[in-house]
Design a protein around this nucleic acid. Structure first.
Lengths: 254, 254
DNA sequence: AACAGTTTCCGTAGGGCATACGAGAACGGG
DNA sequence: CCCGTTCTCGTATGCCCTACGGAAACTGTT
């Protein structure tokens, strides 16, 4: 075990379910992996992902920078641990406890918790989720979404593609939310005031002839609210269409 | 004009449609904004976004680092120019020339070009698109998608939310593609071999009791292909559902 | 009490980054 | 030949990750 890097990270990710035997000799550790991960998350939440440098995480824990390397192999792996920890913090119901019973409500629960998670930990938006950390948080999500979509009545062989389609839309909306939070903080400026600062654009540069449909939508007041409200409406709309489609395919096989 | 930063970037973004009068006096410029943007894109394509540093872009053009700052205000703005340039390079048909005529085919054209764009310029995946550059590339896309969705028969006031829903799903899939390319390069490892390296996970750590639906899907061979094929299938599926829903709402008002 | 074996702790050193500042070079027109 | 204008770019600052290797703390055995 823990032969190559991949195995070492897996052991760290699943450290709670299967802790390695405590060392019987040698100097006592001042910290724990959990403490390091928690410190990393706290700093990233407060000051952004860049600020969660090894030096700053160590400083917050009151130890030297290099001390962290006894707990995690490198910063890359620390980020993986942070991501999986936060993914798991959504606390989606597992196989034992599974309210709500209506599958549509379960999807909305998943969506809501995911949006909240990205709002609370916006730095997630800056980390890729292809090749995700293979830890409890990641798998709790997959199990929840798969089991929910399976409850819609789809044949088992087509559950995965439907579940992934839902996940794609949900994470897309959630990551946009996260980016909004990030930009609001970094620029000290709300999304609306950003647009206000560029209000001259429409007179100085926008060409109505090149953009007839935009112009028509504009005159029909079709761009309701700010961009965040529009994105939220688009997400709600898209999710409704996806769920209706899945329900239709689940009810009667084509 | 060009009073604050925002105005300066707008002038640069739309430099082709409305070029500022050429200076009559002073030393002749060795470069042009276009050349700087092209060099930035070329480096980012070949070596990644980080590699497109001011120093490397300048080196490729054979000038000193600080010379670039006469052409673009800072690296941030250079990236905005690069993004809008690449967005425009999809060459989506404008209001004059608008094949294909079937709106569904037009959406597929948009999706295909966007996927290809992210594959060719994967660094786009690492740049946020909320608060996008307000340049010709961005607006050509919006106009194309909005006009296409309007062609489905939706009432004008609801076109935007449907168009944004489509964009959300398409960019989500495209950005995933981009990340795949990026990771393949950075790790020198295909997605499949990444999973292969972690094949021990299923025996060592995966808990079937905690993940009954995943297990069922697995035994039914429901995870077809690698993760990229799965993502592609999920995208196709999700897009079909969205378009069917939009078609239904366009055909008969609820 | 001394020592061995083991584990944790951490200072140093190196290479890369964006950009403020200001001096110097090239150019057109008088 | 000189002046206003524009372009060119060297220097200097502060922060990042982590390989390396030695010092410190702790347990168990002689």
């Amino acid at each position: 075990m823990a032969e190559n890097d991949a195995d070492r990270v897996l052991a760290l990710l699943w450290r709670h379910r299967n802790p390695p035997p405590g060392a019987r000799t040698g100097r006592r550790p001042r910290l724990s992996v959990d403490a390091v991960v928690a410190a990393g998350v706290a700093i990233a939440d407060a000051e952004g992902l860049e600020a969660a440098s090894m030096a700053k995480v160590a400083a917050r824990l009151g130890v030297g920078t290099m001390t962290l390397y006894t707990y995690v192999p490198s910063r890359t792996e620390l980020l993986e641990l942070m991501v999986d920890h936060v993914l798991g913090s959504r606390d989606l119901p597992g196989p034992g406890d599974s309210p709500p019973s209506d599958w549509r409500d379960r999807i909305h629960l998943y969506a809501q918790r995911t949006l909240d998670m990205y709002r609370a930990h916006p730095w997630l938006s800056r980390i890729s989720t292809v090749r995700p950390p293979l830890g409890p948080g990641t798998f709790a999500e997959r199990e929840f979404v798969l089991s929910t979509v399976a409850g819609a009545g789809l044949p088992i062989g087509r559950v995965n593609e439907a579940a992934l389609a839902v996940t794609m839309l949900v994470t897309s909306a959630a990551r946009q939310e996260g980016e909004n939070v990030l930009l609001r903080r970094a620029s000290g400026q709300s999304n609306d005031s950003w647009w206000a600062e560029r209000s001259g654009f429409w007179e100085d540069w926008f060409d109505e002839e090149q953009h007839p449909t935009m112009t028509r939508v504009w005159h029909a007041d079709g761009f309701g609210g700010g961009t965040e409200e529009q994105a939220a409406a688009a997400f709600t709309y898209g999710l409704r269409l996806l769920l209706e489609g899945i329900a239709r395919e689940g009810a009667g096989p084509p």
